[in-house]
Simulated scan of single mutants.
Amino acid sequence: MTEKLAGKVALITGGNSGIGLATAQRFVESGAYVFITGRRQDSLDAAVEKIGKNVTAIRGDVSNLTDLDRVVAIVEQEQGRLDVLFANAGSVEFAPLGSITEKHFDKIFNTNVKGLLFTVQKALPLLTEGASIILNASISSIKGAQALSVYSATKAAVRSFARNWTLDLKERKIRVNAISPGIVPTPGYNLMGLSEEQVQKFVESQTSKIPLERVGTPDEIAKAVVFLASDDSSFVNGIELFIDGGMAQI
């Protein structure tokens, strides 16, 4: 594999499973040194073992600003800089209008909006000129979904961040792009309160809506993130890259 990220230092939030873990593996295979964060130590330990080399795991919750300070301090102490930031950590739960609680709202916005914003802002001093920031949004940024209005609103905010931060950071030549995955089964689906059987039924119900007639894989998303992190995308800035098999494009 060509080392498209040779010598680069990257931080991936939520890098202990799913898309984050697949991306961490791709980054290391592409020559980068990677820091990953997650809330569960056992999951982080398993991720480090799977990645195998050039990785440091830091336990922390992106919605906790003290945790974010500690993450940035460790990156600065160990590597002194960041060339790539993949703000990937996110949270999702179903709640139809009429049953949305303040607790639900706060949980989703604190992780997906507040956490993402302060992840990027606190990492800014470490980001090199010409660095790449990738934000994990969702096809929900443009597509309605039953019982996911709060989650969808957070992902629309993420897309807006990419547009605005592209301008805020232009003097430093830092590129900011968003990815919007479609249906990509990950362990996060189970965290929505769904059983394995319910996840499978959901996936099957969505497949017919995808022109490629299949769901995506975390590694397919990871390969797109590698592109946005590398010099191959040196003139790509401020976009929302849909990785959804065409689901939100028709």
Rank of each mutant, 00 (worst) to 15 (best):
T2E: 14
K4L: 14
L5W: 03
A6F: 13
A10L: 03
A10T: 04
T13S: 12
N16D: 14
G18P: 02
L21K: 02
T23A: 00
T23V: 03
E29R: 06
Y33M: 08
F35E: 02
T37A: 04
G38T: 04
Q41D: 13
A47V: 07
E49T: 15
I51P: 02
G52F: 00
T56L: 12
I58A: 05
G60P: 02
G60F: 02
S63H: 05
N64L: 07
T66H: 14
L68C: 04
A73C: 11
E76I: 02
E78S: 14
E78W: 06
Q79F: 10
R81V: 09
N88E: 04
V92L: 13
F94V: 10
P96W: 05
G98H: 04
K103R: 12
F109D: 01
L116H: 08
Q121G: 03
K122F: 03
K122G: 03
K122P: 07
L126Q: 08
I133Q: 04
L135G: 02
I142F: 15
I142T: 15
G144S: 10
A145D: 15
A153C: 12
A156R: 13
A156F: 12
S160H: 14
N164E: 14
W165R: 03
W165Q: 07
E171W: 12
R172Y: 10
I174L: 08
R175Y: 08
R175A: 11
V176T: 07
N177I: 04
A178D: 06
I179Q: 01
P181C: 03
G182M: 06
T186R: 01
N190E: 10
M192T: 15
E196L: 12
E197S: 12
Q200A: 14
V203P: 03
E204F: 06
S205C: 07
S208L: 11
I210E: 01
P211M: 10
P211H: 10
R214L: 08
D219R: 10
I221W: 01
V225T: 06
V226G: 07
D231E: 15
F242Q: 05
I243T: 01
D244S: 09
M247E: 12
